[in-house]
Simulated assay, not measured.
Amino acid sequence: MTPASSVAPLRASFVMPVLNEEDYVATAVASVLAQDGLDERELLLVLGASTDRTDEVVAGLAAAHPEIRVLHNPRNAISMSMNIGITEARFPVVVRVDAHSVLPPGYAVTALRSLRTSGAVNLGGRMHAEGLTRYEQAVAWGYNSPGGLGGAVYHTGGEAGPAESAYLGVFDRAAVLAIGGFDESLSRGEDWDLNRRLIARGGLVWFEPALDVIYRPRSSVRALAKQFHASGRWRGEIIRRLKGRVPVRYYVPPVLVAGLAFGAALVLAGAITGGAAGIVLAGIGLLPALVYGAWVALTALRADVPGPVRLRLLGVLPTMHLSWGVGCLLGILMPSRGHNAFAGR
């Protein structure tokens, strides 16, 4: 006899928060509309208060595709946009989509079937960053490597199994509503926090390696620094709220920043002190920068990328680490307020 789960309709509501994404949203939407094998689907685009042509682009897409529903979130935060979309969703499974992502063919069907067979309340695959320019390719390498964003399985890949969080997320809508949805006081790290609460309630969060989603990284130093500073700031907020109960890897960037700052202070003290004692202080103070610089150079040298991309890693990796670390320290030391950190990962 065929199990009931295998013949039950595959129905999904895709939810995509969108803000200032005129260059990316059409591609992301096209990847959703290309998903086949579903019995029913809808795409909810939740618009923030964009300052570019995003709303115009979305209006054209909605006019051409009746399965698109346009919702609005003038307060911008991703957590709020996701809650709006989940509340308005008509189907039992919600598939989160980032406006910077491109879903591969078969993504939705694979995800829904895996959700059923694993018994998970949320699952995700790998966030596979791919850049177009040399700079974007360097950023992408940082995303995909433990040397950039750390060793989370949804960045580096791995075997199917339980996970602490999930990239994007394919949710059991009822399970998410049962825990109150996303925490709207968080503007970043909201997905990690949601999965933490799902697991605490006895739910299973699952990594499915068959889901490999292309992500388009930031294309400039300024945009990358802004993104990582905001991400670090809100991760620090979560660390402060949970009194440090987070994976150890999240402490590496803020410890790095603190070490470099302490080293700089010793160099300054050595310059003021002068003499042999000052030279010793300055020498000790230079060690953190020298060790980190050597590590960055060695990591870039060993990266399996073309030479021009390898050179850009010398700037990309410190931008990632230091922007995130400074933001994290600020988030730990003082509460983060406001909901203006609406942006993709």
Rank of each mutant, 00 (worst) to 15 (best):
A4D: 11
S5R: 09
S5F: 12
V7Y: 04
A12G: 09
S13T: 15
F14G: 01
M16H: 06
V18S: 12
L19D: 04
E22I: 03
Y24G: 00
V25D: 07
T27W: 00
V32K: 00
A34P: 06
D36L: 12
L38T: 01
L43E: 02
L45H: 05
L45S: 10
V46R: 00
G48P: 09
A49D: 15
G60K: 09
G60Y: 09
G60P: 09
A62I: 08
A64W: 10
H65M: 14
P66F: 12
E67G: 15
E67Y: 14
H72P: 02
H72D: 12
H72F: 12
P74I: 10
I78D: 02
I78Q: 02
S81D: 00
N83V: 08
G85P: 04
E88P: 09
A89E: 02
F91C: 02
H100T: 03
L103P: 08
P104K: 01
Y107G: 02
A111Q: 01
L112V: 12
R113M: 13
R126G: 00
G131L: 01
L132A: 11
R134M: 14
R134A: 14
Y135S: 09
Q137P: 06
V139D: 03
Y143S: 05
G147T: 03
G151F: 07
G151T: 13
G151L: 12
G151I: 05
E159V: 11
A160P: 07
G161K: 00
A163S: 15
E164N: 05
S165E: 13
A166I: 00
G169N: 01
F171Y: 15
V176D: 00
G181V: 05
S185F: 03
L186R: 07
L186F: 07
L186Y: 05
R188W: 05
R188K: 15
R188Q: 09
G189V: 05
E190P: 08
L194D: 03
R197D: 01
G203N: 13
V205R: 03
V205F: 01
W206T: 05
I214Q: 04
I214H: 06
P217S: 13
R218L: 10
S220A: 12
K226N: 13
K226Y: 08
K226F: 10
Q227H: 14
H229N: 14
R235S: 11
I238C: 05
L242A: 06
V246L: 08
V246E: 13
V255N: 07
V257F: 10
G259E: 08
A265S: 06
A269H: 02
A269D: 04
A271K: 14
A271S: 15
G274E: 02
V280A: 15
V280Y: 05
A282S: 10
G283E: 11
G285L: 03
L286S: 09
P288N: 11
A289T: 14
A289V: 04
A289K: 07
V291M: 09
W295Y: 15
L298V: 15
A300P: 02
L301A: 15
R302F: 07
G307I: 09
V309R: 04
L313F: 00
L314G: 00
L317M: 13
P318Q: 10
T319K: 03
S323Y: 05
V326E: 01
C328H: 01
M334V: 07
P335D: 12
G338K: 15
H339I: 07
